[in-house]
């Protein structure tokens, strides 16, 4: 042990003298240019999408009778109304915080419909439509149709 220590002690000065300092200034310069460029290009918002598959012209001419409609969620400015054919299943008036989506999700989970149609009133804003689509997806509804104002199913969406 003593021999080893003495031998290291002997080497130390030469080893220290051999260490070269790395000049990192050019790398720093490169980073300083590259990082602001990358930050300016990076999208910090994560974009997603709801996919719609619209039917052809022939389907747009077909008007479904109200009694034949599956479970339908009507989205209006005053709130939500859930109906099966012509029978009203539930009503969720708009609250101060917005639409009662928790109530809608709970109802859809209990009903567990195979097919669902969302009928949106014209003045309702897009954010509310997207929120309803999310609520249907949260309740596990896979086959969701979006109805046009005339009662025609305009599109099918798979959340």
């Amino acid at each position: 042990m003593q021999t080893c220590t003495s031998s290291l002690r002997g080497r130390r000065p030469s080893a220290v003298a051999g260490v070269a300092e790395l000049d990192v200034t050019p790398v720093m310069n490169m980073f300083i240019i590259l990082i602001p460029f990358l930050i300016s290009m990076t999208a910090f918002t994560h974009l997603a999408s709801h996919e719609f598959s619209l039917p052809g012209d022939e389907a747009a001419d077909h008007v479904t009778e109200r009694s034949e409609l599956p479970l339908t969620v009507a989205v209006g400015t005053e709130g939500l109304l859930v109906a099966q054919g012509e029978v009203v299943v539930a009503e969720f008036p708009r609250q101060a915080s917005g639409l009662d989506l928790a109530g809608l999700t709970a109802l859809l989970q209990s009903q567990n419909p195979e097919r669902l149609i969302i009928a949106v009133d014209s003045p309702v804003v897009t954010a509310d439509v997207v929120a309803c689509l999310d609520a249907c997806a949260a309740a596990g509804c896979q086959d969701v149709g979006l109805a046009a104002g005339t009662g025609v199913v305009l599109s099918e969406v798979s959340p």
Binding site: T45, H46, L47, A48, S49, H50, E51, F52, S53, L54, P55, G56, D57, A60, V120, S122, V130, A148, G149, L154, S155
Partner: peptide, 21 residues
């Protein structure tokens, strides 16, 4: 709805509605 209808009439039937994930 009108934009979606117009897209459908022009043959664009696969529509993505962009949202913030």
């Amino acid at each position: 709805e009108r934009v979606m209808y117009t897209c459908n009439q022009s043959g664009f039937r696969d529509i993505s509605l962009a949202v913030i994930g």
